[in-house]
Simulated assay, not measured.
Amino acid sequence: MKVYGDEKSGNCYKIKLTLSLLNIDYHWHAIDLMAGETKTDQYLAKNPHGKLPIIELDDGRVLAESNAIIGYLAANSSLIPTDEFEKALMYQWLFFEQYSHEPCIAVARFIQLYQGMPAERLAEYESLHVTGAGVLTLLDNHLVDHRFMIGQQFTLADIALYAYTHVAHEGGFNLASYPNIQQWLANVEQQSGFIGMFD
């Protein structure tokens, strides 16, 4: 299996972390997002959307979208609940991550870390902090009585939300204000097979 990704990307890190937790062998192909390597003809032939990450299977099939990829990788594993309602809760958090969490936490990080805070995006950055604070507060409140997002079971929901939450400070968010998130991050990092973003 080949994984095409940028190691600084939380979406790409989800794939790396899931593969490590499941002890699945793969080949990492580094793609420099800022150098335009997702816009080359060679890459667009694999993913016409021109985004990261993608995986390429041994038979040549290609799968995009980080949460779809980790769902494929984790099929029939303990990372997906067997109870149908709890499985639906996992998907609920996966959708939340992509539609509510990532658009503010990850984008603020992109503006600060990747782009170096250009003046023309400052107002957007400040607006993202208002939205992002609400998202982090929601997570912190949820985690008051949850070890993981679905309760006691570590699932794909934790992997997806961990990816950008643990580096939220790189987008200007102060996680010291969210003690339950901090404990949850530690719980994730204690999982067998855990690997850091740059490990």
Rank of each mutant, 00 (worst) to 15 (best):
I24D: 06
I24V: 15
H27V: 15
W28P: 02
A30N: 15
A30F: 15
A30C: 14
D32F: 10
A35I: 07
E37T: 07
E37M: 06
K39L: 13
K39W: 08
T40E: 05
T40W: 07
Q42L: 12
A45P: 00
A45V: 01
K46M: 00
N47Y: 01
H49N: 15
K51F: 12
K51E: 13
L52R: 00
P53S: 06
I55N: 03
E56K: 00
L57F: 15
D58Q: 12
V62W: 00
V62I: 12
V62E: 03
S66K: 01
S66M: 06
A68D: 08
L73V: 06
L73F: 08
N76G: 10
S78A: 15
S78I: 10
T82E: 13
E84W: 12
K87D: 10
A88C: 04
L89D: 09
L89A: 08
M90N: 01
Q92P: 07
Q92Y: 13
W93H: 08
F96L: 07
S100R: 11
S100Q: 12
S100V: 12
P103G: 03
A106F: 01
A108T: 01
R109S: 00
R109E: 01
L113H: 07
G116N: 14
E120Y: 10
L122D: 13
A123E: 13
E124W: 08
S127L: 14
V130W: 14
T131L: 14
T131G: 09
V135N: 02
L136K: 01
L136G: 00
T137M: 08
L139K: 05
N141L: 12
N141V: 10
L143D: 00
V144A: 13
R147A: 08
R147T: 10
Q152C: 11
Q153M: 09
Q153K: 09
Q153H: 08
A157M: 11
D158R: 03
I159N: 05
Y162E: 04
Y162L: 07
